[in-house]
Computed example of a mutant assay.
Amino acid sequence: MSARLVHIYLPDSQIGRLEEILPRHTRRYWRETVPGGQEKYSCIVQQRYTERLLEELENAFDALDSFTVCVMKLEAVMPPVHETSDTELLLDRDLPPPNALERFFSRDRLSTDELYEDIEESIHVRPSYLLTVGLSAIIAGLGMRSGQTAVVIGAMIIAPLLGPTMGLALAATVGNSKLGKQSAFTLGIGCLVAVLAGWVIGQLVAIDPLVPELRNRTAVQLSDVALALACGAAGVLAFSRGASLALVGVMIAVALVPPLAAAGIYTGAGYLVAGANAMFLFVVNLVCVNVAGIAMFLIQGLPPKSWRLTGGILAIWAFVLIALTSMMAGRIFLGWGSWDALLSYFGEIG
């Protein structure tokens, strides 16, 4: 069973109010007195109810200086807590119960606070972040240059852009402007470092521009759009369920790190058009990841503060994606993005 052990500390004068809240979110809880006039409540909460319990606790007790909540993951509970559609805990009896699709997607998702905690450390520009991005781009660039797919995958496992990318999608979903600005800034700095790392490789190392691992990053196809959408959706789905960050990082990095490194390499080697094409692929992938990420967060029941704001942001990302896809289709129709055009371009440069 996916469950959390929630410890709640608050003054004993508030226990009546707390005991009105807890039965709406958990069937098992117990109380003990702790020093300092505090009471401690320990609750077994199914993961799908953690979000709404924390939200109601925050609304009720956040103004209290001594109020504290700790959330921990439970591996097992004996006896197990079983739930059916007849025994589920409803927050408001006047609201209709969730349908089967809502239950299916939301039952194992981490709460918003847990998602924030997982992202927090990775959305700030620190020396370790800059070094990780640079090294990841170098590994990916050298792997693409030599055609070693396994090396490129190794660069993805490092996953330096995971935090800010997930932060952008999460901020747009819940309407957190501070998180969005910090994530965008950190992502922008990381992208710049990745391109510069690739540019250094292009300056110092001889490259064959027609190596498949590099060449594949210079032309955007409909399959690339589908890949980026799938990566964004799968990455958010895995991330919101507490999957290994290495696994999530591969999903996200496959769409972001290689195009950035390729853009830098081609630019450093003097293939400016190819570098621009690789950067175009990165932009398309970034938009796709955000569109799919926001949609997946919403499908899983992540509560937006304002549906109008979240819907507006999603609509903007979708409009940009349509515009980029139209540009891509026009380039292919005119022959600018075809393999023959790229081969001709590389031949002229060479």
Rank of each mutant, 00 (worst) to 15 (best):
I21W: 08
Q47F: 00
I44H: 05
C43K: 04
Q46Y: 08
C43D: 02
Q38L: 15
R31C: 03
R31M: 11
E51R: 08
L53W: 09
C43F: 11
G36W: 12
E39Y: 13
Y49G: 00
R28W: 15
D65A: 07
E39L: 14
L22A: 00
R52A: 11
Q46I: 07
E39M: 14
L64W: 09
Q47A: 13
T26L: 01
R48E: 12
I21V: 15
I44G: 01
S42Y: 11
P23V: 03
V45Q: 04
D62F: 08
E58Y: 03
T26Y: 00
A63G: 05
K40Q: 02
T26N: 03
E56V: 11
Y41E: 08
P23H: 07
F61P: 05
R28G: 10
E51I: 01
L54H: 02
P35G: 15
L22E: 00
D62C: 05
Y29P: 11
E32N: 13
E51S: 05
Q38T: 11
T50N: 11
F61W: 09
E55K: 04
R24F: 14
E56Q: 10
P23R: 00
W30C: 00
V45I: 07
E32Q: 09
Q47D: 11
D65E: 13
V34S: 04
K40W: 06
V45Y: 02
A63K: 08
E58C: 01
V45R: 04
T33S: 15
K40Y: 01
S66A: 12
T26I: 07
L53H: 04
Y49M: 09
N59C: 02
L54E: 09
Y49E: 08
R52P: 00
V45S: 05
A60F: 07
A60P: 10
L22Q: 06
L57W: 03
N59T: 03
T33M: 02
A63Y: 06
T26R: 08
F61S: 02
V34Q: 08
D62N: 12
T26V: 01
N59R: 10
Y49R: 00
I44V: 11
Q47V: 06
P35A: 15
E32S: 15
E56G: 04
E39D: 14
T33N: 11
Y29N: 07
N59Q: 08
L53E: 01
Y29Q: 10
R28Q: 13
H25N: 08
E32M: 15
E55I: 07
A60S: 14
L22P: 00
F61A: 00
Q46A: 01
E58R: 09
Q46D: 09
E39R: 15
E58G: 07
R31D: 14
W30Y: 02
I21C: 01
F61H: 08
